[in-house]
């Protein structure tokens, strides 16, 4: 009986990977949402939820790449804000610009910000915590200086469709963007890049000795995180329009989502799909709290508890506990 359970458990964890807990959590949250509000699963309500969550999911995928390589990216929230404000200012100066041009410009700018983060972290050996914190402050200050606290442009409807509108009249573009980002991330993690990225996060020295160019891998992770943040900016700007605080708090939400997905801080462990599921869980939890009538002010408290608990639980040494349990049960006469 015990052996059967162990085997079943082994198979179960093997099938789901490191993210098993997050899927269970997601299932529990979705069940709680269904109990709180049966309408939640009406197609349009659920798709609206997906639309709302898509930016965070994409951001979490980007953050995952950086975290699994052993670093942090705290600048993503500021990149989102900067992206929205820059788009508004660009439209202020060139009202006739095509949305595709503006979007590509934003993605490029996000890549440049990520490139700067990556180069400074790897080649100048500034810890990523400091590099990206500095980048966050630089961008926040620059945005404030440029826009003077209130952006001047308006985002036109065609730019906003990606974040607000739906394909075929029912499927939100944001959900498609989220799906595309997910497929791309899974493909990336299965490619050589993904394997070397995890190897780098697991042990930089071993990776270097095995011939991995760890600097290049990490810089690429930062670049992709920057691009993900820029894509998030396009979705957020589209969803809710111009705001000088569009990305506020997103960096911590993204890190919370990644941690919730069972990805080890410090790198080397975790799957990107679990990180994205972590983002869904976090948004589901916020929605649940909101529907339960819990004050929004508690959101950050909940987030703090989750981050500490998830990292603490992940780091605890469960194997010792299990061994003790096995020994005591073995000693019982049958």
């Amino acid at each position: 009986m015990t052996t059967a359970t162990a085997v079943w458990r082994k198979r179960g964890t093997a099938a789901l990977g490191a993210g098993a807990p997050v899927y269970a959590l997601l299932a529990v949250l979705f069940a709680a949402l269904a109990l709180t509000n049966p309408d939640f699963y009406e197609p349009d309500r659920f798709l609206a939820f997906v639309k709302r969550t898509a930016p965070l999911v994409i951001l979490a995928a980007g953050q995952y790449l950086v975290v699994v390589s052993g670093e942090f990216d705290l600048s993503v929230g500021a990149v989102v804000t900067a992206g929205v404000v820059v788009a508004a200012e660009l439209y202020g100066s060139f009202p006739e610009a095509h949305w595709l041009v503006i979007s590509l410009a934003l993605l490029l700018a996000g890549a440049v910000a990520g490139l700067a983060n990556g180069l400074i972290t790897t080649f100048l050996r500034v810890p990523s915590f400091i590099t990206t914190l500095g980048m966050m402050l630089i961008l926040e200050g620059a945005v404030f200086y440029w826009a003077g606290g209130s952006p001047h442009g308006v985002l036109p409807e065609d730019f906003r469709i990606l974040g607000r509108g739906s394909a075929f009249g029912w499927l939100p573009w944001a959900a498609l963007a989220c799906l595309a980002a997910g497929v791309l991330a899974v493909w990336l993690m299965r490619s050589d890049f993904g394997r070397t990225l995890i190897a780098t996060g697991d042990s930089e020295r071993t990776a270097t000795l095995s011939g991995v160019r760890t600097h290049r891998v990490r810089v690429l992770a930062f670049v992709l995180s920057g691009v993900a943040a820029a894509l998030t900016a396009i979705l957020v700007g589209g969803f809710s329009g111009v705001s000088a605080q569009a990305g506020r708090g997103y960096e911590f939400e993204a890190i919370t989502a990644v941690v919730l997905g069972g990805v080890a801080l410090g790198g080397g462990r975790g799957s990107v799909v679990s990180a994205m599921a972590g983002a869904f869980s976090l948004q589901a939890l916020f929605t649940l709290l909101n529907l339960q009538g819990v004050s929004g002010a508690l959101e950050s408290t909940v987030q703090g508890v989750i981050v500490i608990a998830a990292v603490g639980l992940g780091a605890a040494n469960w194997s010792r506990l299990r061994r003790t349990r096995t020994r005591s049960s073995g000693g019982t006469p049958s």
């Binding site: 269970a24 995890i198 998830a310 469960w318």
Partner: peptide, 20 residues
């Protein structure tokens, strides 16, 4: 791709604690 350290039960506990 990486083995879990079996914190599923604890995470569930946390989640239910939060919800309650």
């Amino acid at each position: 791709m990486i083995r879990s350290r079996l914190w599923a039960p604890s995470a569930l506990l946390l989640a239910s604690a939060l919800i309650t």
